[in-house]
């Protein structure tokens, strides 16, 4: 049985506050353990619409539509989900849609599962190739400021911005 290493989760609450202050109205996600707290906060809030996806690329398209209609959105996914989005990112890049993505990393810091390594190792390069600006964060004290700054960057400059949260921050699975 895989157990989750206990980590401090207040950063998730503070990211949620950043979403509310930043005017985020739609949050699309494919679940990840590292996002569990933030997803839960979004689901319980009347200020954001939490939308579960079957695959991450749906969220890319959905948040383009959200912006067309006047809503800001955020896409929550695990690093493996970035690979599912690649062609849909072309819509974002061609149209200069603002897109904020919050990516929890796998296959990176203290990973046990070798199958997570190929996509995790390629996540930042894949995002960069798809025209995104990459903001990695591996220090829990910098998560919230990084998210807040990335939201401004995305929505003020009409660009795809991805914050990559390291396993160093979210903790890694202990496989026993």
């Amino acid at each position: 049985m895989a157990k989750k290493k206990k980590t401090e989760v207040t950063w998730a609450d503070r990211i949620f506050d950043s979403f509310v202050h930043g005017g985020i109205r739609q949050v699309a996600y494919v679940p990840d353990a590292g996002h569990a707290r933030l997803i839960s906060l979004c689901e319980r809030s009347s200020k954001v619409r939490a939308v579960p996806l079957t695959t991450e690329e749906e969220g890319v398209a959905m948040l383009a539509g959200a912006w067309l209609g006047g809503h800001r959105g955020a896409l929550l996914m695990q690093s493996s989900g970035v690979g599912n989005c690649i062609n849909m990112f072309s819509v974002i890049q061609e149209c200069r849609f603002p897109l904020f993505s919050l990516v929890t990393m796998r296959g990176e810091f203290g990973e046990f599962n070798p199958w997570q390594v190929p996509m995790g190792d390629g996540t930042a390069r894949a995002l960069a190739n798809a025209g995104a600006l990459i903001k990695p964060v591996d220090d829990v004290s910098r998560v919230v400021e990084t998210v807040t700054a990335a939201l401004t960057l995305a929505f003020s400059t009409y660009r795809s911005v991805a914050v990559l949260i390291s396993q160093r921050v979210i903790g890694y699975k202990v496989w026993k």
């Binding site: 398209a61 809503h71 819509v91």
Partner: peptide
């Protein structure tokens, strides 16, 4: 593959 989902985001907004 994205048209219906663009529609969903727009419809919610």
């Amino acid at each position: 593959g994205g048209a219906a989902m663009i529609g969903l985001g727009l419809a919610i907004a």
